[in-house]
Design a protein around this nucleic acid. Structure first.
Length: 289
DNA sequence: AACCATCCCAACCGCACATCG
DNA sequence: GCGATGTGCGGTTGGGATGGT
């Protein structure tokens, strides 16, 4: 306040503080983000979600505002272009498969319609690559018979496509299915796009050593969009692992324990049992995969 | 050259919490 | 305990810069 008065500034203290912390501080970097910094952001975001201050604390010379802006303007698009959902850090195709195999057919139909706009690039990529021959009008065929692949590569992709097709087929076959409430879990909530926004990732064994790894999708027993991955980045439910990371981060910085803060605030950022998908660093830096 | 759309980032806003008298 | 003030944080916006037509 004194500074504002002395300088004759027409700004409130808060504005001045923000200007200083985000722009004027001598130790700030103003250049472009390096590849290493981008990778760090992506990795940490998969763990902590939109906790920009936490992420920025691991990037010397960068502010939370810097990180946030860079994420919103560059990294989100980059991940989306790679077919990775920037919120969940899962491949779009796998999210689709989860949805298709978890929801009731009518809901899948509505979702598929809405999601096609978002996921079309990824789906087209998959379908083109695998030369999938959608035969939704022939439900009697076994899933494996509904498409042909050009190679034996990547059985997981096949499974993914299979699941998508199964879900869509069911949806199309039963477009007017009775929507009356049932005992099924999916009937307990209206399905909106908001339900599918979330951040979940498997907590890495080591933050510094953690990287996107090969999709572990396919463990049918542990996968449910409702119990695994449907939390928002900034409001993910608490988990013991979150505190562990917080403690580790603060240990490195010698700052106040965020874990204690989180405990005090009654909130935390991590969810348990999430999945981090593998993205080769080269791909991450590839503007368009 | 003019117009338009998009990108980018500093700044703003609102909220929650901490500190102080 | 209470109100005023300061601080931290995440979400959003405003407007200049840039590129395309």
């Amino acid at each position: 306040m004194v500074i504002i008065t002395m300088a004759g500034l027409q700004r409130c203290g808060k504005s001045c503080r923000l200007r200083w912390t985000n722009y004027l501080r001598p130790d700030l970097k103003h250049g472009q983000f390096s590849d290493a910094e981008e990778q760090t952001i992506v990795r940490l975001h998969s763990v902590v979600g939109n906790r920009w201050s936490l992420i920025a604390a691991q990037l010397p010379g960068r502010t939370d505002n810097d990180v946030k802006n860079h994420w919103n303007t560059k990294l989100k698009k980059k991940l989306s272009g790679m077919g990775i959902d920037p919120v969940t850090h899962k491949p779009f195709s796998h999210l689709m498969a989860e949805i298709a195999t978890t929801l009731a057919p009518p809901q899948v139909a509505h979702l598929a319609e809405a999601a096609l706009g978002c996921f079309k690039d990824e789906m087209l990529h998959l379908l083109t690559k695998k030369r999938v021959d959608f035969q939704l009008q022939q439900p009697s065929l076994t899933p494996a018979a509904t498409y042909n692949t050009i190679s034996n590569q990547d059985e997981k992709d096949d499974n993914t496509i299979e699941k998508i097709k199964l879900g869509l087929s069911r949806a199309i076959q039963e477009p007017n299915m009775n929507l009356a409430p049932s005992n099924k879990p999916w009937d307990s909530a209206v399905v909106t796009s908001a339900n599918f926004v979330g951040t979940c990732s498997v907590f890495p064994e080591s933050v510094s050593g953690f990287q996107y790894g090969p999709p572990s999708f396919g463990n049918e027993g542990d996968v449910s969009p409702w119990n695994q991955s449907m939390c928002t980045g900034s409001t993910c439910p608490a988990g013991d692992r979150q505190g562990q990371l917080y403690e580790r981060l603060e240990d490195e910085n010698g700052e106040e324990s965020e874990a204690r803060k989180e405990t005090r605030n009654g909130s935390s950022i991590f969810s348990s049992d999430c999945v981090v998908w593998d993205i080769p660093s080269d791909n991450l830096m590839n503007p368009m995969v």
